[in-house]
Design a protein around this nucleic acid. Structure first.
Lengths: 224, 224
DNA sequence: ACCTGAACACCGTTCAAGT
DNA sequence: ACCTGAACACCGTTCAAGT
């Protein structure tokens, strides 16, 4: 009879592992099982490499997460950037609506960028800077100072981020954002309103309407 | 000579531990060392009880986190609720400015409520529902439908939440939100604007100004 | 009824090797 | 230069006790 010992997988040749392969594997694992399930041992197993080999390419897990964040964010730009032509109001409305859509349909990207501490900070979205610059150009042409314009764009992005994060938190808990929050009858107005416009998320229409309200408010400001 | 064996702490009497004591200890530990440092073994050690004793009072760590979230959120209400009298515009402006202040000065509360998955969802802030009801009353009196009014309040809270979370992420990374983001000169408008109004946070004035813009936009809507 | 340590299956990371 | 397992100090949780 042959030897019965558990045969361990063959040692990988040197040069057969790359940072890119690890990033791709990590993205695949996190997409399939969730970011929480991404552990170094599991990743090593999924890639068929020794756990510790990962540490030759990345100093630690945080560095790896940074890398997959950049990789995941890179694709965002093409998904959401509106055509160059058009009034800033419409371009900006479209940009943030698409941003919300993209993050809503990509939990992993949302988790990497907005949930818990994204170590990259604002650098995670460097790919969007040309888009910001273009909007600033259009807005200054419309009468804004650059500071006013940027302040407005930041506000819109904060609103969008808030909406995305709220909904993500609900989904993470297995709560359907469409189901209204139960509110005791002590609060008649709130409980009536919460049946339509609940506090667990925003409908597409409500999001867009409020976004437009903010944009129009800014536009009125610049006209002054 | 006396026995040299490491003496283990005396066994606690039955009844000497309470859920409240555990919650207080957990809050103290999380405040002192950060939410990440709150582990079951550390908490047991801090309280001088066996780690596993905690499991008699809480099913698991998540349940304990829920409990301390509720405990931490309870104090929020008194801190931020504005006086009853006044126009809804001013009350709401004050409410969200104070909400931001409270969360900015209490990292733990911010982490519990907004960073990563808060299992309690909107129930974490039940203590604010009377305040919401009051604002809905005032806003419907001013011409809003209850749904419109709630939609507006949700939007304001999303903006606030976005601002708080962004700043918290920066602080968590040890980045000073006041230091401007370095932007390459390829983006002249952005780099000029980013020196004043950077993308790492919002100044108090900018936050309030944008909040007021949103409120006035809502008010104009109801006048129609 | 309440409190406990031993034990288990995980984790991230270091280190001293192997090739 | 690149890949590796053994080992370490942690974690959350279960379980079978003790009192």
């Amino acid at each position: 009879m042959g030897k019965q010992q558990a045969k361990r997988p063959a040692r990988r040749e040197r040069g057969s592992i790359s940072a890119e392969e690890i990033i791709d594997g990590a993205l695949a694992l996190a997409e399939a099982e969730g970011l929480d399930a991404l552990s170094m041992p599991r990743l090593g197993r999924a890639l068929g490499i020794g756990v510790t080999s990962i540490y030759w390419y990345f100093d630690n897990k945080d560095a790896l997460i940074d890398a997959i964040t950049i990789a995941a964010a890179r694709q965002l730009h093409d998904l959401i950037t509106p055509p160059e032509a058009g009034a800033w109001q419409d371009r900006v409305e479209q940009l943030y609506c698409r941003m919300r859509d993209a993050l809503r349909s990509n939990d992993l990207l949302c988790d990497l960028l907005y949930m818990r501490g994204n170590r990259l900070g604002e650098n995670a979205l460097v790919h969007l800077w040309p888009e910001v610059e273009l909007n600033l150009t259009k807005m200054t042409a419309a009468g804004f100072t650059a500071e006013e314009a940027l302040r407005g764009l930041v506000a819109l992005s904060l609103y969008t981020r808030g909406a995305v994060v709220l909904e993500r938190q609900m989904r993470r808990q297995g709560i359907d954002p469409a189901t209204p929050t139960p509110v005791p009858a002590d609060f008649p107005l709130l409980s009536a309103a919460a049946e339509q416009q609940n506090m667990r998320g925003v409908t597409d229409d409500a999001f867009r309407a409020q976004l437009r309200l903010m944009i129009d408010g800014l536009a009125a400001l610049s006209a002054r």
